[in-house]
Design a protein around this nucleic acid. Structure first.
Length: 482
RNA sequence: GGGCCGUUAGCUCAGUAGGUAGAGCAGUACACUUUUAAUGUACGGGUCGACGGUUCGAUCCCGUCACGGCCUACCA
């Protein structure tokens, strides 16, 4: 079937490869000293200058005694000109045996064609690596979404906008690190392999550590270890790395994802707010091209200040001034009238929260800090000074998605123990008692924040699928693999 | 996990109210010394996702499966 015809391409390329070998070329050759990457050669273009360059052959325009072709490296594309009389006969004949996709090294002089294209007229060339399989079509690129994710290398070669988006992701992560380091934060690494998966409520990936003969979990969040570091005297730390959650795949969920968590001692939410506002506007301006992302009604405006509103006010705004005075039955009826299906086990708080998650959050398109969540929902946060039923937190929502929750961290070990015990219920093994012990030694008051980096990049880049910002997103394994 | 949709040449896509399929790019051959989606002429290339069923006959209809997409559910 498809392998058969694909083999015809491969067979032909093997024939070409052997012919080149017979002429003394090494098909999977060697290092090649280049004057610079193609972008540098373009930048430092001087008429007549002798340079060497290397890249992958991407298009060939053969006119008999004269060939124009493009080569590409990780930085740019560049046109080369192969003129029959400019190199020896055998080298010219050998060049015609090349296939699109081959890596070559070339030497020659720069010039400008009559159409104004900077070009390298080659006097020598060498084969650096043979490509045995054809690349996707040059004009339409690779469209098949499955192939794009499974063979991302082809996607990167043939779809320049994909490469550009990943370059932006790389730049955003680099800028995030320098932004935080410039403000005195230290980047740390804490365990991804944990004996207890704490810091969030998600199903973990389970594995087994043979040496200790014990179950281990891939972390679902770094939070509890970062707080141990607060106890240990690291008062400004962050970790920017992967967490893992054994939950469903969707347009906005990948089982491994990149999270940034930041903790600063002796500060509170206002400190976290300054950081997130500064960081996001910095990234928008310096990496993604400006403070307004997208167009028309979808545009997101990152100009400060951002809206700040309490959870309670949002609920009232959506469900009516009297919501919090309603009986449970009346509230449930009103929620169901809005199209929500309610779990009979829920109480008033969960019904209200369902209203927030299903009816309100997705409508918060512009950057919005939602504050003062019910305390039961956020067991690791400290309560507000004026009202112990709500916690001193914000969730930054952008484009209808939760991008960054921040807490005044709970540092009262007695309250923390009670809340974790309550949450774990009968499943007491789930409580990380080592963490509670650390708190008892005294954790400074602190603000903390978690930022889903993949989602932040989606938001800033204006893409709506998480797999478009992850190089190798998770897919089901193909059983027919060779 | 549930619902709906998709899978045709290496790539991008047409198509057949059931009679084993076409185009462009790519490939092969020839021509061509300034092209850039080079051009011109000719040629080759397909188990129409897999397996069953219905039928004289299935890429097309039906069923199962695989993979993917969208929606939905789980992820404080």
């Amino acid at each position: 079937m498809s392998e058969l015809t694909q083999n015809e391409y491969r067979e032909q390329r093997l024939v070409n490869m052997r012919a080149l070998e017979d002429m003394g070329y090494k098909p999977f050759g060697h290092a090649f000293k280049r004057s610079g990457r193609l972008a540098e050669i373009r930048e430092e273009f001087v008429e007549e200058k002798e340079v060497t360059a290397a890249g992958r052959l991407t298009t060939v325009r053969d006119m008999g005694k004269s060939i124009f072709a493009d080569i590409r490296d990780g930085s740019d594309r560049f046109q080369i000109y192969v003129q029959k009389k400019a190199l020896d006969e055998e080298a010219f004949a050998a060049f015609k045996l090349l296939d699109v996709g081959d890596h070559i090294g070339v030497a020659g002089a720069l010039f400008t064609t009559r159409t104004g294209e900077p070009t390298l007229k080659i006097s020598k060339w060498d084969l650096l690596s043979k490509s045995l399989l054809p690349l996707p079509e040059k004009w339409h690129g690779l469209k098949d979404v499955e192939a794009r994710y499974r063979q991302r290398y082809l996607d990167l070669i043939s779809n320049p906008d994909v490469r550009e988006l990943f370059d932006k992701r790389i730049a955003a992560i680099k800028e995030t690190r320098s932004f935080l380091e410039a403000r005195g934060f230290s980047e740390v690494e804490t365990p991804m392999l944990q004996s207890q998966a704490g810091g969030a409520a998600a199903r973990p990936f389970v594995t087994h550590y043979s040496a200790l003969d014990q179950e281990m979990y891939m972390r679902i969040a770094p939070e509890l270890y970062l707080k141990r570091l607060l106890v240990g005297g690291f008062d400004k730390v962050f970790e920017l790395n992967r967490s893992f959650r054994n939950e469903g795949l969707s347009r906005t969920h990948n089982p491994e994802f990149t999270m940034l968590e930041i903790y600063e001692a002796y500060t509170d939410l206002s400190g976290m707010k300054d950081i997130i506002e500064g960081l996001i506007t910095h990234l928008a301006e310096n990496v993604f091209g400006g403070l307004v992302v997208g167009e028309g009604d979808d545009a997101i405006d990152f100009n400060l200040p951002w809206r700040e509103v309490t959870y309670r006010d949002l609920i009232i705004e959506r469900m009516g001034d009297d919501w919090y005075d309603l009986s449970f039955e009346d509230a449930s009826a009103r929620a169901e009238k809005e199209g929500l299906s309610l779990d009979p086990a829920w109480g008033m708080m969960m019904v209200t929260h369902e209203v927030y998650e299903k009816l309100i959050e997705k409508t918060l398109h512009q950057p919005t800090f939602v504050t003062r969540f019910p305390a039961e929902l956020v067991p690791l946060a400290g309560t507000c000074d004026d009202d112990a039923s709500v916690v001193d937190v914000f969730e930054l929502v952008i484009g209808g998605k939760e991008v960054a929750p921040a807490y005044k961290e709970l540092n009262n070990p007695l309250v923390q123990r009670e809340r974790l015990d309550n949450q774990a219920g009968e499943d007491a093994e789930k409580v990380d008692y080592d963490f509670l012990t650390a708190l008892e030694h005294g954790m400074p008051p602190a603000g903390g924040m978690g930022i889903g980096i993949d989602r932040l990049i989606m938001t800033l880049a204006g893409v709506d699928a998480i797999r478009d910002v992850i190089l190798f997103p998770q897919l089901r394994q193909k059983t027919s693999a060779e």
